[in-house]
Design a protein around this nucleic acid. Structure first.
Lengths: 233, 233
DNA sequence: CTACAGAAAACTGTCAACAGTTTGCAATTT
DNA sequence: AAATTGCAAACTGTTGACAGTTTTCTGTAG
């Protein structure tokens, strides 16, 4: 599963427009080009030392990823999701991550369970020491691992696309925090459900984990739902 | 919701590469270019009376949609999903359509319920007369309506992308059938759950509907799952 | 001082040509 | 006869230039 993906990656990197696509995507996600801003094809071409052709191709590809918006005769703009779109994305992420948990619980190997427990332990250690700098990348890798190990590449691709779009959301800082211990107790339940090879329980645990992140986002925006957020999607 | 989408559509259509994108996508989905085949940029450019630039841009956009695959220095190929990928897609569709049902049940208006009942009635009439030619487009419109009315544009975009990819699956004919009456009893349960404004029941009904389609696909390929397919995702 | 009209600059959309790679064919060798 | 090597045609990748539109600036009128 990883070999063809790497091969493709290498091949894509060979083409100039492929390199540009990655580089521009990185610049966008890193915030070097602020959301809402118009992207100048010429400037990009000069910056990377190419002509505008490959730049335009890369931008068309990024449009497909939902990172930029093309307006004819006016140019491309870095997309700037509204809160409403972020909420939409969280709802979709909720069911996708839930599915990942279910699928993983159905097929997980002993080695993978051990790996998950290892992640969990490291995250708990980081949380005990309030070591946020260690916690954040661990947390990211933990979630990535689950998405990869679930064995559904379509799901993984869609999920990653959604996460990228969320990066464009201006108030993402509000969401990323959310309590190390709280998060970790949720992580523990996820791992336990997977280790027990209980698909239904795993699906619920994974769904709830994202649903709670959505609830934190809503709370931060004061847009509480009519009813308190129902978990277990 | 429909206005900005139409506006975008119009704007996209104005740009030449936008027209090409739509036209090439149509040709691909209509099967005019068979899956697996290499697409010749020059031929396409000549066919549409343009230069290769816009053609390349359109193809890059279609790559983002997952309809074609770009291999550097070799060209673009129409993607040809394997059974495994079709199954993956069905799993994702299952949870997405379930979410659509849940969201719709939470927000549905009286007018929309009436519209759903109307679709249902027409489909049942078509089923009674074994009028497959009428049934198929109705069925399509019914599902489209649910996806649109659920109010989550992100979900709708993802769902539509998956359906397009499934169109490339060679054995799609196997799946599209599946019994008019069977399908309709499932549709009835979906509509009833929505009309009752019961999100949980609606989610289950919608998930199960797609899960059963997946089960039919698996049966057709003799790839029965270890356990009989668990419904209610 | 503000509003407006027109011109200039900047930028996007498109094209045709060139460079480099791949593919298919044919001649040669084993 | 089969395999291999070298060549030629075809095709993709990239570039620079031109055409059309949008935006900005400037000068003028109210």
């Amino acid at each position: 599963m990883t070999i063809p993906d790497d091969a493709l990656t290498i091949l894509r990197t060979r083409s100039l427009s492929g390199v540009l696509e990655r580089e521009i995507e990185r610049a966008i996600l890193a915030g070097e080009i602020p959301p809402g801003k118009r992207v100048n094809e010429n400037h990009l071409a000069i910056r990377f030392g190419t002509s505008r052709g490959p730049v335009r191709e890369a931008l068309r590809a990024l449009e497909g990823l939902g990172l930029v918006e093309l307006i004819p005769n006016r140019g491309v703009f870095i997309r700037q999701p509204a809160v409403e779109e972020a909420i939409e994305i969280y709802d979709v992420r909720t069911v996708l991550f839930g599915l990942a948990g279910k699928l993983l619980a159905e097929r997980v190997s002993e080695a993978e369970v051990a790996r998950l427990r290892d992640y969990l332990e490291q995250m708990e250690a980081a949380a005990r020491h309030r070591d946020f700098d260690s916690y954040y990348p661990l947390n990211l890798a933990f979630h990535e691992f689950i998405i990869d190990a679930c064995g559904n590449g379509t799901l993984a691709a869609q999920y990653r696309g959604l996460v990228k779009k969320l990066h464009l959301f201006r108030a993402r800082s509000l969401v990323q925090g959310g309590g190390l211990e709280v998060s970790n107790s949720e992580h523990r339940e996820m791992v336990e459900a997977i280790a027990a090879r209980d698909p239904e329980r795993a699906q619920r645990a994974h769904s709830d984990h994202v649903a709670r992140a959505k609830a934190r986002l809503l709370a931060a925006y004061g847009k509480a739902e009519a009813q308190p957020p129902r978990l277990t999607n």
